[in-house]
Nucleic acid binder design. Structure first.
Length: 866
RNA sequence: GCGGACGUGGCGGAACAGGUAGACGCAAGGGACUUAAAAUCCCUCGGGGACUCCCCGUGCGGGUUCGAUUCCCGCCGUCCGCACCA
């Protein structure tokens, strides 16, 4: 066979067609093989993808192809996270309907993804904006409502004034909307909530079972849920004249041990008491307005100055009867605990800052054992360590440890009926109302007679109207002339539809379950859900470490509660991959340039192609359209082929880290594909037919076989651990050994070498197949492999070839390497010691010092101590 | 501020579980082949020296050990998450 250049364009198209026609990647329900579900976080169809988007799909594809070869029934589906604001913005800015815009984008991106040669089961494809999907979501919503997991209530919300919508806390980043970047305001609105806090403890505890998740993500979820155990209790209040008031003041604390150090109380500006007083007191009213205006902006947080206004009221200390001034303070949050605190300045930095500013007493009540007269300056003393600190200045608590003091206070206050133990979470319920068109309509009706009524199942789905208009701010569903007019499902009277749609995070909280039964008439087919789930390997960006993953874990529980599936956790294994980055380029005027607009000169400098002027080169950053540092897949695929792109994306950098896209890197990957193809051709020329395994192997042939089998073992191990960069290095090593051997041959190889060469060719092709599937399939065919490689089992390493019978032992003298020793692998200690001492380098290094000790670590090292 | 991760050649990175530091790739330099170029192949590639040999070297300073990139203590630096959560 003549050695031809490998032509990726022709080959890739051909095999993609064959795989497609033979439905090679279809996941089969009710199959005897063990199942394996691998899933990459599904994309938002924003239009065209750049090569940086491909990395996580390629990683998932390597796993899918590997597991398939390992004998698993693999489910590897793809879908579209298709609701969301950009579609609506396109409608507003360019007059394109969100539906058309979205489906066009999906079609374009599907074509692009197909070019990557992913082994996906496209028959399960879904789009969240498809009524077939969101109608089931509405049904699930109603079931959750009936199960008490959905609530409507008025609350302070994060209002994005640019997108004109409500944002969840998680969607506010540094006081700004996560998508619009606008400074978020606080507003009070009636909203729909999922009661995720009902599951707070379970979501927290079960993190312990997620042993195939990155520690980092588990920690982030723990911190996000933020469980803390404390005490809720109330103070009696008196006015300025000392007259007892009707109300009292309930606070939450985790440091009830410090109650004797309390010197003030403070309530949030949004606390009912503050509102009440604000109605009568202009100073407090003004302060409340100031705080609201400051909102949650980054600036406010950075300034973080503790401020407050005295209310003129006093809280009565439950043990001493002392009167503690009550303030309205900006650093007390209404959303956490009771929105009110007692301040113990000596042991809390915030309280201390506040006390110093307003001249309040600072009395230490916890002190190190050996320093009972602790003085507190500008730093609060926050140690609580079991034995090292003791209570002081605290009457009956003196001398107790912090935990004992907490227990004693809790016991006494509970007994007097003014306190209860309480667990608080940082996690809040999930507000899902969005004042938007392009989302899943919330299937509820507002009736003046019956109140809020869920839409009965037989009246679902509530479809979005196609004739919405986008020419003014606010919610198009609300503006629609007729859509919201309905009759009440209960009394039949005139009523209004809910015009809020759901947060798009709802859509992505159960899609992985829908993939198990994409055609199910019900929300899901529970039997199939339980058969396919959990997802064995989920792959996506770390930016979803909290939001999406926590919501999905909640949904899995909620679905279980309303009768869908019985799994506990949706994602058994999680992998967070790094981004692909690229250098940025700007022309002398500072405008961003695409990589193809610049050229690198021989001296390494970069010039603007159009003008010849020097370009400003910026550090590698995540590929983004706005900075134009993107590379389109089409360009790469036409030049180098998708296998080279896949190979490069997986090389060099560990998959969890960001990886820089470079032209020279892809070229290197392309050289690799060419080299393998060439070597395969050479082997076929040297050994045209498959030959039987000879009984005897010479040293060289045996050595080559050893490399092949060690490569199988190493690559398998690396792929199992998702260490793709290492797997690729191992394949390179094998190819180097293979190429060296081919170059060394003079004349026709003997039967042993002929066998070893073919074995090596097949091995390299098979173990690199998950990474470069098209090249591998083509080479497999050329080598006369049976059937499709995509369906072939994974090669097995022969154990006998993994162990050497002769090994090289490094020899150290006093811990420094001096020489090495070739010995039989099973050589005994005495033989090794003797041989080591014979070495010239060892004698030289020892000089005239006597040998004091020889350490022999079998199979590892020899160290002569002199 | 709190929590976490990480610091290895010119670059990306490797090094099982304390045992030859720098695998593999990229870049660079030299050579072969060619009329020439591309492609390919061979060699060099942490620093230094008296260069078949020796010294230094995994952010810095200590420690444990026969032996430390790996373990411990203390610094310095970078990145990430949370950010008034009582």
């Amino acid at each position: 066979m003549a050695i031809e250049r490998y032509n990726p364009r022709r080959t890739e198209a051909r095999w993609q067609r064959v795989w497609d026609e033979r439905e090679v990647f279809k996941a089969i329900d009710e199959d005897p093989r063990p199942k394996y579900y691998v899933l990459e976080m599904f994309p938002y169809p924003s239009g065209k993808i750049h090569i940086g988007h491909g990395r996580n799909y390629v990683m998932g594809d390597v796993v899918a192809r590997y597991k398939r070869a390992k004998g698993f029934n693999v489910l590897h589906p793809m879908g579209w996270d298709a609701f969301g604001l950009p579609a609506e913005n396109a409608a507003i800015e360019r007059g394109i309907h969100p539906k058309g815009w979205t489906y066009d984008n999906i079609a374009a991106m599907r074509e692009q993804l197909k070019l990557l040669g992913l082994s996906l089961d496209w028959s399960r494809e879904l789009a969240t904006c498809d009524p077939a999907y969101y109608s089931r979501q509405q049904k699930l919503f109603v079931k959750m409502f009936e199960a008490g997991l959905v609530e409507r209530r008025t609350s302070l919300v994060n209002w994005d004034p640019v997108d004109n919508t409500v944002l969840a806390n998680e969607q506010v980043v540094d006081g700004r909307g996560w998508r619009s970047g606008a400074v978020v305001e606080k507003r009070e609105l009636a909203q729909w909530f999922f009661k995720i806090t009902d599951f707070a403890d379970d979501l927290l505890d079960a993190i312990g079972t997620l042993d195939q998740w990155p520690d980092k993500v588990r920690l982030m979820q723990r911190n996000w849920i933020g469980r803390s155990e404390g005490l809720k209790f109330s103070f009696d209040l008196v006015d300025g004249e000392g007259v007892q008031m009707e109300e009292n003041l309930t606070v939450f604390t985790t440091r009830h041990d410090t109650i004797f150090g309390a010197s003030f109380c403070a309530v949030s500006p949004d606390h009912p008491l503050a509102k009440d007083l604000g109605a009568r007191n202009e100073e407090i009213a003004q302060f409340r307005r100031d705080c609201a205006a400051l909102g949650t902006s980054e600036e406010a947080i950075e300034r973080a100055e503790k401020r407050g206004v005295a209310t003129g009221l006093y809280a009565v200390h439950p043990f001493t009867g002392a009167r503690l001034p009550v303030y309205v303070a900006n650093f007390v949050l209404m959303g956490y605990g009771e929105g009110a605190i007692f301040g113990c300045p000596a042991h809390d930095q915030r309280d201390l800052d506040f006390a110093r500013k307003y001249g309040l007493p600072v009395l230490p009540v916890v002190a190190p054992k050996d320093e009972p007269d602790l003085e507190v300056g500008d730093e609060a003393f926050t140690d609580t360590e079991g034995d090292a600190v003791r209570l002081v200045n605290s009457e009956f608590l003196d001398g107790l440890s912090v935990p004992d003091a907490k227990e004693e206070i809790a016991r006494r206050m509970e007994a007097s009926g003014r306190a209860e133990r309480k667990v608080n979470y940082r996690l809040r319920d999930w507000g899902i109302s969005r004042q938007r068109y392009w989302g899943c309509p919330i299937p509820m009706v507002h009736c003046d007679h019956c109140g809020i009524v869920p839409v009965p199942e037989d009246q679902l789905p509530i479809l979005l109207p196609d004739d919405a208009t986008f020419d003014r701010p606010g919610n198009p569903l609300d503006h629609h002339p007729t859509w919201k007019d309905v009759s009440c499902p209960k009394c039949g009277g005139a009523a209004r539809r809910e015009t809020d749609t759901m947060d798009t995070f709802v859509d992505s909280s159960w899609y992985f379950a829908r993939f198990a039964s994409p055609a199910a008439d019900d929300v899901v087919d529970s039997a199939l859900m339980d058969a396919w789930l959990p997802v064995d390997q989920y792959i996506g960006g770390v930016e979803h470490a909290v939001l999406h993953l926590l919501y999905s874990r909640f949904f899995t529980r909620a679905m279980g509660r309303v009768g869908f599936g019985a799994i506990r956790e949706p994602f058994k294994g999680l992998f967070t991959q790094g981004m692909i980055t690229h250098e940025t380029y700007r022309d002398p005027d500072g405008r961003w340039l695409f990589p193809e607009d610049v050229e690198r000169q021989a001296d390494g400098s970069v010039i603007v192609k159009a003008t010849g002027l020097p370009a400003k080169v910026g550090a590698p950053e995540k590929m983004s359209k706005s900075k134009r540092n993107v590379v389109s897949p089409e360009t790469i695929l036409e030049t180098f082929g998708v296998d080279a792109a896949r190979w490069f994306m997986l090389s060099d950098t560990p998959p969890e880290r960001d990886s820089e896209w470079t032209e020279s890197g892809v070229e290197g990957a392309w050289r690799f594909t060419q080299r393998v193809w060439r070597l395969v051709g050479q082997v076929i020329e040297l050994v045209p037919e498959k030959i039987a395994q000879p009984a005897e192997f010479g040293d060289e042939a045996l050595a080559l076989r050893r490399v092949a089998h060690k490569t199988i073992a190493a690559v398998s191990e690396d792929i199992e651990q998702l260490r793709f960069n290492r797997a690729i290095a191992r394949v390179h090593e094998a190819v180097n050994a293979w190429g060296d051997q081919v170059a060394k041959l003079h004349g026709a190889p003997g039967p042993d070498m002929a066998y070893a060469l073919r074995e090596m060719a097949e091995t390299v092709v098979r173990v690199s197949a998950p990474m470069v599937p098209h090249l591998a399939e083509e080479a497999w065919e050329a080598l006369g492999g049976e059937g499709l490689l995509a369906l072939a089992p994974w090669p097995q390493a022969e154990a006998a070839l993994l162990v050497e019978d002769e090994i090289v032992l490094p020899v150290q003298v006093n811990g420094k390497r001096r020489d090495e020793l070739r010995v039989a692998a099973d050589a005994d200690q005495e033989t090794v010691e003797k041989a080591a001492l014979e070495l010239d380098a060892v004698k030289r290094a020892l000089g005239d010092r006597p040998v004091r000790k020889i350490i022999v670590v079998p199979g590892r090292i020899v160290n002569v101590v002199g």
